[in-house]
Amino acid sequence: MAQAIHGKGPSHIGIRMSNAAPESRKEAARSEAEEALFGFWVFLMSDLIIFSMLFATYATMGHSLAGGPGPHELFDLGSAAWETVALLLSSFTCGLATLAMRYDRSTGKTLFWFGVTLLLGLTFLSLELHDFFTMASKGGVPSRSGWLSASWALIGTHGLHVTSGCIWMLIMFAQVAKFGLDPLVQTRFMRLALFWHFLDIVWIGIFSIVYLLGVLS
């Protein structure tokens, strides 16, 4: 960790402590934040392995339709495109929120951009729920075929992650109301931002492999 602790790259995700704090305390607080972020990366990578195995399961189930409905009948690419737009914009606004927090130190701006991120996340979830209901109404329920079980497991796990990200954001709003944007709350926001960006990356895999390649085959 030595390199990460002393690293000062211009674009690094780090926490800038108050200028009033003595240099050594600032350094200590920053290295603590760096370690917390590195630990969160370890969690994200374990999550990545879960998603990878769900993708692998999905790939092995690609032909196991068991006579049930397939991607052509069940998927609406227009809806998937709007979900992609919502999630991508939310990743961007999440980035703007971290900029407002780290550089402007403005609680109002930070909460505004995280609020926009939350709304876009909820937009994504409502579109996805609508997709799930449409699929189920066409007979595409998880128990119908191996392919459907794998699809629901993969897309559903991602949806649950986004849901927990939204709940996490609400909890952070409550923490800001109680503690203000103190250094501890800031590192939690940074971890939330990492989580949120990570979920957008998993979604790239889902729309490419499940939706686009599915409709193509």
């Binding site: 960790m1 390199q3 990460a4 002393h6 690293g7 000062k8 790259g9 690094h12 590195f38 990366w41």
Partner: peptide, 9 residues
């Protein structure tokens, strides 16, 4: 990126 400060990540 490939900079030294991000090697661990």
């Amino acid at each position: 990126d490939l900079s030294r400060s991000h090697r661990d990540d």
